[in-house]
Design a protein around this nucleic acid. Sequence first.
DNA 1: CTAGGGGTTCCTGTCACTGGAAGGTCAATG
DNA 2: CATTGACCTTCCAGTGACAGGAACCCCTAG
Lengths: 133, 133
Amino acid sequence: MNIGEAAAASGLPAKTIRYYEDIRLVRPARGANGYREFSERDAHKLAFLGRARSLGFSIEDCRTLLSLYEDRDRASADVKRVAREHLGRIERKIAELQALRGTLDQLIARCHGDDRPDCPILDDLAGEPDRTR
Amino acid sequence: MNIGEAAAASGLPAKTIRYYEDIRLVRPARGANGYREFSERDAHKLAFLGRARSLGFSIEDCRTLLSLYEDRDRASADVKRVAREHLGRIERKIAELQALRGTLDQLIARCHGDDRPDCPILDDLAGEPDRTR
DNA sequence: CTAGGGGTTCCTGTCACTGGAAGGTCAATG
DNA sequence: CATTGACCTTCCAGTGACAGGAACCCCTAG
């Protein structure tokens, strides 16, 4: 199957598949005309990558997960560790964004948002002490 | 004040300040020796930018906020709109990450994480239907 | 024979910096 | 006066994970 079919089968854009070949995540065969030839196994790998990426795993994590997937002697502990580290990063990111949300929420609440120029949001960004809080 | 002092005063790395000049967020004067010369006003702007960036505003948002900050005839509604749009992006991102966390949590919980090879995390990534859930 | 819809490579751009190389300038010291 | 070391300058490359587009090749149908 050529790249268009592989894209349809895996749900990944052809551009992305070419990129994955560039960084050696997949290594499709080549036909006489220079076209990539994807096996079922290649397509399966691509779908695996698509799902791993949609869970937010980095490309390097994907590389690790893929090699674990293909290793019949893997230990599930290794997979779990990768997933847990990823989960930790996500949780830290959530906490960080929630803190931002809290700050922004407060600033927005205090700004009347009309056609007058005075604005607690700008005051805060300018480092001015807040007299209304 | 030269770039090192401006960096210390604003809390931004000198590299970042040079970059901000590159993209015309600040326009410090130049001395006879070619060194940048930052006024108090410049330093204040840099600190403003640092705070806006730390709230997660994009550079383009910062550009807008800075011009609003410097416009005495601004309407606070304009500032509030920028902030609300940013807040919306943050909230969408939080929701997205929370969904990822939920999925990952479940997968991790079901993986025994020992030295055996069978692993629900890999099974899920491989697209296999789950028999234990 | 031509048109179109595949495919190919290569280059550029994204975002907001960061690191590093090669070299100029300044203030203090020997 | 020469040197040292801290500072400054510019320019180039890399980050992550692609996306857009140009220029060109290939295959099939009409």
